[in-house]
């Protein structure tokens, strides 16, 4: 068999195989379209993969932003630490204002630097 015959035979064999358009497939697609049309618009929007993805991304972004804003807000950490310090000092029975600087000037206690001597 020469090359041309083989070419022709191959093309004929390839074209001899195919499929029919089964009406059941159209019925199935129509049923899905009609079922979808019966759903409320909001449900349809929410069920879209893109909408779901966008909603999730928006949620993550807003949660991240909120956490950043809360942690960087002025006074948020200082008030907490002040409260912590106050409670520690209160536990020891020391007034917060009198603590800093007092030990260095106490007689009989070595100052921590030679600058004041």
């Amino acid at each position: 068999m020469n090359g041309e015959d083989l070419d022709r035979k191959l093309v004929r064999m390839l074209a001899a195989v195919g499929a029919d358009a089964e009406p059941a497939l159209l019925t199935r697609a129509r049923a899905r379209i009609e079922a979808r049309a019966a759903e409320p618009l909001v449900v349809r929007w929410v069920m879209r993969p893109a909408a779901l993805g966008a909603s999730l991304a928006l949620f993550v972004a807003s949660a991240g932003l909120s956490l950043t804003l809360i942690s960087s807000a002025p006074g948020s950490t200082t008030s907490e630490s002040a409260t912590l310090m106050d409670s520690l000092l209160a536990e020891r029975g020391i007034e917060a204002g009198s603590v800093l600087g007092t030990p260095a000037t106490e007689p009989g206690i070595a100052p921590d630097s030679g600058g004041t001597r």
Partner: peptide, 14 residues
Amino acid sequence: LGELYRELGPAMVS
């Protein structure tokens, strides 16, 4: 859609 399927269905399925 039915018209389109009648026309192009065999090619789509094949």
